[in-house]
Write a protein that binds this DNA or RNA. Structure first.
Lengths: 335, 335
DNA sequence: GTGAAAGCGCTAACAA
DNA sequence: TTGTTAGCGCTTTCAC
């Protein structure tokens, strides 16, 4: 006899009633409810999520797709998403597809598992087929790009505007951009915001200042390090560098140090994300603060909305420029 | 008619045969197999993992419990674990229980989901009840401490020995220890290895050199920063500091900088984990290299063994001391 | 070598 | 208000 039956028996009710009190799916008289609850406790009964999923077609299971969990930006977002999810009885599986030769199998596996929703925190074209399939299977998707589902992303326009205004005010005219990722594929919005700001404040536009990513596209310490070296080699004559994320910015710091350049005396640096370590760097790193907790929470809430078939609109969460010591007045010509 | 039935029909076989070819669970003649495979492809049929779990009682789903995913050490381990898991058709859910008021609900949820195994990458006493329950439900567990299941952890004895030998050779006698976490609760093995090494090389033993964690136990930049300040305040007169992880070590670097102390001229620093950023620090951080990929892979493989009911022994993966510029000859008295 | 049928633990009509 | 029952999609004896 299954535990479930024992519980029903002990409470003197049917299995269906047990189900109803567990799910509060129907009114059950207080006495019965109490008896059932007692029996559940006594037998330490925990309903099988799997069996439930089988009939309801919902798994209370969502996924977050990332391509670089080692970047604390994503860990922070994931943390917040899990926390929110837990409040609603959901579990979120973080899938770091960086580690796989991403042949979409992972996503197919998620589909087989009746996953309810996916938050695509970092997008790559490789994901397209699997995501198409997911959406057509009725899985809700929130993503950083408009190709798929509803968009949830950071709005870099305000922060990049503030940053550029600040740099302009400090005498900077040539600001370099190090991408790491492929600008075309996944960094549209950030790069566009950067370009508009450059134009708005009348700074110099020069392709020599732009370092696009190269395959395998990564935006980590190494990318920043290599990017900075490349700019130096090109003699791009920048007085400031904006790196696509803090990791890359830290790599830039290391490269410049190696070349005997001082930050911010010789060159100013701005990163992006405001990960915890940014302020512990030497010098403390200026950055664009991405509200990581808000992002994670929003991702889950949007998914929840979609799953309830409620209307859900694109969300762009604004980021904010934070000036720290890595930025200062221009004191010499660009390097 | 379900897709499954359509497939069976199209292939001119029974549903059972479809199952057998999908799972290779019985010999099926080549012709039939080919027909079935073709039909599966044609209808793009993907078996429901959930329905399968329901009958097999195995979910091909394991979890990794961490308390600080923002520490890239764990992200790296998780990455490797997922990669290995994917090869065997398993999915691993990373549960960052730091973000929850950990009332064990998360773990209970995992149990309800028929999870097959759990890798407890960081242990806290809070987890005890849930893990007990998990084990008695037949869930396999691998953990960093011997209280639960089979142990998988890093062996810090060799690296700490090398480190201490190196420091001794450089003239260090007073080496401080900053824990962040609670030494008693989760840092036994590392701290014991540290103490033995101190003794072995005849360095000074002094409780003033030990900074234990305080609730809420964290081992991050802040912990290192605060720990260093505390040591300075205590006038512990150390010439070197070993921080429980690289994050904390970076915090130490920042605190010392603030106090006008130079590394390594005034004091030597060693971290632990060898996370990617360590070598990009200023100065590049000496550390104990933890084989994170190996750990992640081992965790999954051990779980796999246990699930197959094969014998599985405790595993201690040795770490290795890496000297970088943050360590040098003692040039002045301890601070 | 292949298929028929029972049943995994649960929910949701529908009956009572 | 509560109970009966029919599946959810799959695997797995057990006959054939």
């Amino acid at each position: 006899m299954s535990i479930r039956q024992q519980v029903a028996l002990a409470a003197g009710v049917s299995e269906a009633t047990v189900s109803h009190v567990v799910n509060k799916s129907k009114y059950v008289s207080p006495e019965l409810e109490a008896r059932v609850l007692a029996a559940i406790k006594k037998y330490d009964y925990h309903p099988s999520t799997i069996a439930r999923s089988m009939v309801t077609k919902r798994s209370n299971h969502v996924a977050m797709l990332v391509n670089d969990l080692k970047n604390p930006r994503y860990a922070a977002i994931a943390e917040a998403m899990q926390k929110t999810a837990a409040n609603y009885g959901y579990i979120v599986s973080i899938i770091d597809f960086n580690s796989f030769e991403m042949d979409n199998n992972q996503v197919m596996d998620l589909i087989s598992r009746n996953i309810d929703g996916i938050f695509v925190a970092t997008y790559t074209d490789d994901l397209k087929p699997a995501l198409d399939k997911a959406m057509s299977s009725g899985i809700k998707v929130i993503s950083a790009v408009k190709e798929f589902g509803i968009v949830l992303n950071t709005d870099y326009v305000p922060s990049l505007d503030e940053m550029m205004k600040d740099l302009k005010g400090l005498g900077h005219e040539r600001v370099a951009y190090i991408s790491g990722y492929s600008i075309k594929e996944s960094q549209h919005s950030k790069f566009e915001a950067f370009k508009s700001a450059v134009r708005k404040y009348g700074m110099e536009e020069d392709t020599a200042l732009i370092v696009d990513g190269k395959p395998p596209y990564r935006a980590d310490f190494r990318a920043g390090y290599d990017g900075a070296k490349e700019l130096l080699e090109r003699k791009a004559r920048m007085t400031a560098i904006f790196a696509v994320n803090d990791l890359a910015a830290i790599g830039v710091l290391a490269a410049l140090r190696e070349e005997g350049l001082h930050v911010p005396e010789d060159i100013s640096i701005v990163g992006c994300d405001n990960i915890d370590m940014a302020e512990f760097m030497d010098p403390p790193l200026s950055t664009l603060d991405v509200p990581k907790e808000k992002m994670g929470e929003a991702a889950m809430k949007m998914l929840l909305k979609l799953m309830k078939k409620e209307p859900c609109e694109d969300v762009w969460i604004p980021s904010e420029y934070i000036r720290r010591k890595s930025v200062s007045l221009v004191k010499r010509e660009g390097v």
